[in-house]
């Protein structure tokens, strides 16, 4: 059987990516504010509020301050949020309310190109936010360079992973309110239990295994080791996990959107 034209994907997808960039640039001041201030809020809350009660944490053979421990998690969580919210709420609005995808489908673009562009755009937003946050956090001496620079391409990889999952949900949810469900069942548990605010090892055994299956756990490990300058070959395995995650969820996202839109 011939594969549907939806899955014919060329570099033309960059045109749709450009469209999103144009819209982003129109309100760039608003877009730059959250990644600029959010890390400051976290540092204020955890650095001044919480870390005095915690002291140091023993992580990967070294003793580090609680602030140093959670800084990489703030980066990882933001990578997840930027991509996931872009390909869920924002993409859904473009698809369902604004009919933007319908208009694009009347041009030489294929559906696969539109969806790919949305996911890559979500990853781009993760990357932009990460660059701004790195700049802010570097001011506090919380990032180890040059290893910390690797977090920038990592933000893109993580963005593709979470963006693909988000797009899969966009292909499935009957209405925009239903996004509450994957956020409650998938995003919030990751936010709390992926080694973000306390080491995964503090969890009971069964929960540790569960946490290891979640992509944010691996992204946090990567950002943490890069922030601390603890770079080893084992990090490649973590990155490989994210890559495999993309290879599974990107095609699933394409299939779910094809089923939703092509009738």
């Amino acid at each position: 059987m011939k594969l549907s034209s939806s899955f014919d994907i060329s570099w033309r997808f960059l045109r749709v990516w450009q469209r999103n960039l144009i819209v982003y640039r129109r309100i760039w001041k608003v877009n730059f504010l959250p990644p600029l201030f959010e890390p400051l809020f976290y540092l204020l809350a955890f650095g001044m509020g919480l870390s005095t009660m915690i002291g140091t944490i023993h992580y990967a053979g070294v003793d580090i301050s609680y602030l140093t421990f959670i800084t990489p998690a703030i980066l990882a969580i933001n990578i997840m949020y930027n991509a996931f919210f872009e390909t869920t709420y924002a993409s859904f609005v473009r698809m369902y309310y604004q009919k933007t995808f319908d208009a694009m489908m009347a041009t030489p673009l294929s559906l696969g190109e539109v969806i790919t562009a949305e996911i890559i755009w979500g990853a781009t937003k993760s990357l932009f936010a990460t660059v701004i946050m790195l700049a802010v956090l570097s001011g506090f001496g919380l990032i180890h360079y040059p290893d910390g620079l690797l977090i920038i391409p990592l933000a893109f990889l993580g963005g593709v992973a979470f963006g693909s999952v988000g797009m899969l949900f966009t292909g499935i949810v009957p209405s925009i309110d239903v996004f509450n469900l994957p956020i409650f069942l998938f995003i919030t548990p990751m936010f709390l239990f992926s080694g973000t605010f306390f080491p995964v090892e503090n969890l009971p055994d069964w929960a540790q295994h569960l946490a290891l299956a979640l992509p944010l756990t691996h992204l946090v490990r990567l950002t943490r080791h890069l922030c601390l300058g603890l770079v080893g070959v084992d990090l490649l395995l973590e990155a490989a996990y994210l890559l495999v995650f993309c290879l599974i969820f990107y095609p699933l996202a394409l299939i779910s959107m094809h089923r939703r839109l092509i009738q």
Partner: peptide
């Protein structure tokens, strides 16, 4: 299906880029 995130002129220019 006009793009509400873009101006009148941008609607035409961005659409042209899809081609």
């Amino acid at each position: 299906s006009l793009d509400p995130d873009l101006t009148v002129q941008q609607n035409l220019e961005v659409f042209g880029r899809y081609f």
